[in-house]
Design a protein around this nucleic acid. Structure first.
Length: 110
DNA sequence: ACTATGACTCAAG
DNA sequence: CCTTGAGCCATAG
């Protein structure tokens, strides 16, 4: 049986799976790397999510993915960080002291 | 195949 | 609040 099976469990956390979840994050909401990994069935693969963002295809709302502390993981002052913050604020996400209140903007899938 | 690395996370000091 | 160390797993060279 070389059936590859469904990619929901027992498979490696692929970029495709990560991208699919990231696309599900609604506008004005944010999700953490760990949360995406967990939703994909890999609670410990937060790093892979971040790595996948490095290879994120055009059109992917990568800016809605932040770290567990409610801050942007990109180097502060970098072009990416500024772009991310600007896009999030455009969507209505509020930064308080450079931080996002996950209780308020955190994405909660049904 | 192996080693190094990384847009992470958590616990402890 | 910040720093340090360890765990984690896929990708790149």
């Amino acid at each position: 049986m070389s059936a590859p099976m469904s990619a929901s469990r027992k498979s490696k956390l692929t970029h495709a799976a990560i991208f699919t979840l990231v696309r599900r994050i609604p506008e004005g909401r944010v999700a953490t790397y760990g949360q995406i990994a967990r939703l994909a069935g890999h609670p410990r693969a937060a790093r892979q999510v971040g790595y996948a963002m490095h290879q994120c295809p055009p059109g992917l709302p990568w800016h809605r993915v932040i770290n567990a502390r409610g801050r942007l993981s990109l180097p502060e002052g970098s072009t990416g960080a500024l772009t991310q913050r600007r896009r999030l604020e455009t969507e209505g996400v509020v930064f308080i002291g450079g931080r996002i209140d996950l209780e308020r903007h955190g994405w909660q899938p049904d």
